[in-house]
Each structure stands twice: as C-alpha cells, then as structure tokens.
Amino acid sequence: MNEQVNQSQYPPSNYLVFAILATIFCGKIFGLVAIIFAAQVNSHWSAGNYDAALSASRNAKLWAWISVAAGIAWALIFTMLAVFGALAGLMQGAFDF
C-alpha cells in the first residue's frame, strides 16, 4: 500500500469507540490491545509520525475485530455446550416431571 500522508490531512480514525465497545461486550484481552493501539493514533499523528499513526490505526481496527470474533466464538461454544448438556440430561431422564 502506497499511501501519501502529509500534515494537512486529517488524522486516521483511531477506532477508540469500537475498541471500547469490543472490550466491554466481546473479548477483554483482545479489546485492551485494541484500546492501546487506538490511544496511540492521535499522539503519533501530533508528533509527526504519520506512518506510525496509520499503523496504529490499522492495528486498533484489527484487534477490535479479533475481539469481536473471539466474543462470537465464545458465545457459540457456550451455547453449544448448553444445548449438548441439556440434550444429555434429557437422554438420561434428568428432567422427568
């Protein structure tokens, strides 16, 4: 990717809101990594490190999506275990009423 960046452009998106929401609702560890990268975007931009700001922005977005994927995977695994546990209980007659 050959991106031309200069100081007159706006800073790249820091994805901080996305990272915070992904941390709260999905994966804590991966979300914290996303928040750390998101917090670096504006400081790199104001220091004149434009490539580092773009890199931190991309990393924040990537880790926020990884956090969302981890949250979805955890929810699917939990749901499958609950369903299989209920089915196993039904098969053994644990829910006789």
Rank of each mutant, 00 (worst) to 15 (best):
W74L: 06
L87M: 13
F30P: 02
N14E: 12
N14H: 13
A52P: 03
W65L: 07
N6I: 00
A69S: 05
I72D: 00
N2I: 14
M91F: 15
K61S: 13
V83H: 08
I72G: 00
F30I: 11
L90H: 12
Y15R: 07
Y50G: 02
M80D: 08
A75N: 09
I77G: 10
A56L: 10
A34Q: 06
S43N: 14
V68Y: 00
Y10E: 03
A53H: 05
L32K: 04
F84G: 12
I36M: 09
I66M: 15
W45F: 11
P12R: 05
A22Y: 01
S8P: 00
F84I: 15
F30W: 12
F84E: 14
V5R: 01
K61V: 07
A64K: 06
S46C: 11
G89L: 05
P11C: 06
A19L: 09
M80W: 09
A56V: 11
V83D: 10
S13F: 01
G85V: 10
M80Y: 10
D51L: 15
G48W: 07
T79D: 10
H44Q: 06
S57L: 05
W63P: 02
G89K: 04
T79A: 15
M80N: 07
A47T: 07
A73C: 11
S57W: 06
N2P: 06
L62M: 15
I24M: 03
L62K: 15
W45E: 02
I66P: 08
A60G: 08
F97C: 09
E3A: 00
A88W: 14
L62E: 14
Q7T: 01
W45I: 05
L81T: 12
M1G: 14
N6R: 00
L16F: 13
A47R: 13
V41E: 10
V5A: 00
T23N: 08
F97N: 13
H44D: 06
F25I: 07
I72P: 00
A69K: 03
A70E: 01
H44G: 02
P12S: 10
A70I: 04
L76N: 03
L76G: 04
I77R: 10
S55E: 05
G71Q: 01
A73F: 09
L54A: 09
A82T: 12
N49P: 06
N14Y: 05
G89E: 07
F18S: 04
S57Q: 09
V41W: 06
A47G: 12
F84Q: 13
A88D: 15
G27L: 03
W63K: 11
V41N: 09
E3F: 00
I29L: 12
G85S: 14
C26P: 00
I35N: 09
V83Q: 09
A94H: 08
K61P: 03
A34G: 12
L81I: 11
W74C: 04
A38I: 09
L76Q: 04
A88N: 15
S55W: 03
P12V: 08
P12K: 05
A70D: 03
V41R: 05
A75M: 09
N42T: 11
Y15C: 06
K61T: 11
V17E: 15
N2W: 07
R58A: 10
F97Q: 12
A47I: 03
T23Y: 04
Y15S: 04
A69F: 02
H44Y: 11
